[in-house]
Amino acid sequence: MWEFFSRSLDASTIFLVAALGELLGQRSGIINVGIEGVMLFGATLGFVTAQSTGSYVLGFLVGIAIGGLLGLLHGFFSITLGGDQVVSGMGIWILGFGLTTYIGSPFTGPLGLDRIPTILGLSPFFYVGIALAVIIWFVLAKTGLGLRIRSVGENPTVAEVSGINVAKTRYLCVITGGMLMGFAGAIYSLDYNPVWSYNFLMGWGFIALALVFFSMWNPIILLAGSLLFGTMWQLSLNPQLVLPGVLSRYIWRMIPFIITLGVLLLMSTKWFRSRWGAAKPEALGRPYLKD
């Protein structure tokens, strides 16, 4: 049971870190629907680096760096060029899916390094994830930087007039956000499940995206949502723990996605919508270009 519990927390951490990256970008007004692609890149390049050099540290650094680069790319398309953010995000996802399939294929199989040691029986990244959630919550809610981020997400024109550099603030958020997504991917492939196979993420990034909507852009609610989804994901992999012999294992794999749809439906109720509308960054997804 402890094994199940700690694995659930590991899974939650990955959802949490990736979704925090997305949340940060969205708070500044930039939506990135390509989380899955950024995670695939972080996971694959982190895996390849760690296996080639034998160093976990390098693996994580490369995962974070590629995430930051993809964040920069998304920022360039959506901030500097003022393009459609959904198109750019889709591009990053398909780029990630396509290129990592090619890059990772020769490395198919287990990582072959000693497992990362646990702290009090839990993965060290669990503590990192909690700390990140608290830090991001604190920065967004309590600091001047957070105020600037929120104001460019709400109304970039007013923010610009009041002396905030909109482009710079948004770049900061999407790059940091990309680094977090790449980090989440690396946690997956180096710690949670250190085996490379074709398109192994299978929806983690898209669930993280749904989680951000669900969290109403609040890192603390996001933390709770991640714990819920991490546990559920782990349960869908090990249904025998609760209901041995009921339903095929493949049907169980469908359940996290069904529940995500259920959550999205729940969010469309009037009660939720009014709160959601109030919390939603006003300028989310809208290009801002100075003429």
Partner: peptide
């Protein structure tokens, strides 16, 4: 290695995004 067609998919997509 496996996945040349998938890699091409990715490169085409991102180039297209830039060309938008």
């Amino acid at each position: 290695s496996f996945g040349v067609d998938f890699a091409l998919l990715g490169v085409l997509m991102i180039t297209l995004v830039a060309f938008q």
